[in-house]
Amino acid sequence: MIPAALKYVEADSATAAIAALSEYGDEAKLLAGGHSLIPLMRFRLAVPAVLVDISRLDGLSDITDAGDHIAVGALAKHAEVESSSLLQSEAPLLAHVASKVGDPSVRHRGTLGGSLAHGDPASDLPAAVLALGGSIVVQGPDGERVIDAAEFFTGFLETAISETEIITEVRIPKSGSAGWSFQKFNRRAQDWAIVGVAAVLGASPKVSLINMGLTPLRAGAVESALAGGGSAAEAASVAAEGTSAPSDLNGDAEYRDHLARVLVERALDEASS
């Protein structure tokens, strides 16, 4: 629980942060809310030589209406996402999911960009962004690019962001009147989901799964079944197909597969009711 020595750099702008990342390369880690990184550092599972603190950057935490989507600043805290009336009306799933992350102290420090950048398959917010068909805006030395959430998570705790890029914004398409649901099953209110499901119906229903593989992922088999006219029960029965659930003290893969089927059915039922 005692982190190793490191160099601390406070970035006062996105440009400064990118410059610091360019200077220190893979020795550097960005610090936003710190609720994933600091525990890893305390266990010395992460030993960054340089911490680039972006938590005090101005202008990266606004939540604004950008026409067909809502633009959420990467440093918007979960509590800000949760209480945003814009998100509550235009993409209610995201606001709701933010309210279910950890406990109040986590939600007042953790950031949406940080949660996506960490890419933890057990986290709630990546699943919400996936189910909403969101995209992630990253900025680097060569400018800005926009990555579809479906292309963003590339491996266990790995994403499509390069070493010298930072997330500046998350774009959430307005979900309008589409039905939605979030199902999170855990043993204590503050825990990560043993399995979770986010679903947004509408023209092309999107369903995503929490803690069912190495990355936050879309439930491809479920979505195909729905697209093919399958019922909620039929679609739910294939929820675990194409996934590779982990086994840990909270549950083994067989149990998680079962939970995925139960929770997908509940999500589809709730979203369509």
């Binding site: 266990f43 406990d103 043993r187 204590r188 209110a189 503050q190 003290l249 909270n250």
Partner: peptide
């Protein structure tokens, strides 16, 4: 050994 997965209940439970 840590509170990550040694589950001490909170008032929520």
């Amino acid at each position: 050994p840590s509170f990550l997965d040694y589950l001490v209940p909170s008032p929520m439970e």
